[in-house]
């Protein structure tokens, strides 16, 4: 196993990853290091494999029959595709926020408590505290503190997405994966979530898929550019946007296609 020289700064390291849906290969020889306490943005035209790559990191792809990942993915230097990986533990360490807000059809409180209860926390006092803390972090607390027992589905889209983020961070994960978290949201909600990400990055490592170049520039420290299953370019966000090495990247950034 190849060890990265400055592995202390690396949260997750992907090495030579090939990914298949059945016979169809959708990712080719991807290698990427995700830095601790940074926001990494994944960009690229539709269908290039961003979501797939994101799901590699918490093994959500396992749910898809015939999906196969070949290569190494090290989380804190441990292979998450190794034989003795506990997927359930992994997903508690690496939380995920989906493109469409997907609160469970339960009350706001139960949505937040769900993961905690699964983790085995029974102390009601503690659950309530943790929930309050996370909701405050996502600045949802003020909006919902009096109606925690209302159905989460009655919240607005932006509120729902922030609830989903709160639900992810209440589990105190180490990493948060976000797949186009703002694509269903209005500009105000988007702004709120971007600010939230910037706050969260102090405690967590964040990977975000986005089609919005402005957003990537605004929030991310690193950017990876995917093209048809290849990682064409991966660098500091500033570098990618100002001095792209690949022609394709430049074209994409300049909005010529995609």
């Amino acid at each position: 196993m190849k060890k990265n020289e400055n592995c202390d700064h690396i949260k997750l390291s992907v090495h030579h990853l090939d990914f298949f849906y059945g016979k169809k290969q959708v990712l080719r020889k991807i290698s990427m290091d995700i830095h601790k306490h940074s926001i990494t943005a994944l960009m690229g035209p539709s269908g290039c494999g961003k979501s797939t790559f994101l799901r590699v990191m918490n093994r959500m792809n396992d749910l898809i029959p015939e999906a196969r990942a070949i290569g190494t993915v090290l989380l804190d230097n441990e292979d998450i595709y190794g034989n003795n990986t506990d997927v359930v533990k992994l997903r508690q360490r690496v939380g995920m926020v989906f493109q469409q807000p997907n609160p469970l059809p339960k009350s706001i409180f139960d949505n937040m408590a769900y993961g905690l209860r699964i983790k085995g926390i029974k102390d009601k006092q503690k659950i309530a505290e943790l929930i309050e803390k996370s909701l405050k972090k996502t600045s949802l607390w003020g909006e919902v503190k009096d109606e925690l027992h209302k159905s989460a589905l009655s919240l607005s889209g932006g509120q729902q997405q922030r609830l989903c983020i709160a639900r992810a961070i209440v589990m105190e994960p180490e990493m948060i994966l976000m797949d186009e978290p703002c694509s269903a949201l209005d500009p105000i909600s988007t702004t709120k979530i971007e600010e939230l990400m910037k706050e969260l990055v102090d405690d967590y490592t964040i990977v975000i898929v986005t089609h919005n170049m402005q957003q990537a520039q605004r929030v991310s420290d690193w950017t990876g550019f995917f093209y048809m299953g290849d990682l064409l370019e991966f660098d500091k966000t500033k570098e990618i946007f100002h001095h792209p090495k690949e022609k394709k990247t430049q074209e994409y950034i300049e909005g010529r296609w995609g």
Binding site: L63, K89, R91, F98, N102, L104, Y114, G115, I118, A168
Partner: peptide, 27 residues
């Protein structure tokens, strides 16, 4: 039952059985 519910539960680290019992069946 929308798969988003199932995904939400699994992504929070619930096992498949927990997900069936706590999310899928109630939904």
């Amino acid at each position: 039952v929308p798969s988003s519910f199932k995904n939400a539960s699994l992504a929070m680290g619930a096992t498949h059985l927990q997900t069936i019992w706590n999310v899928i069946l109630p939904c």
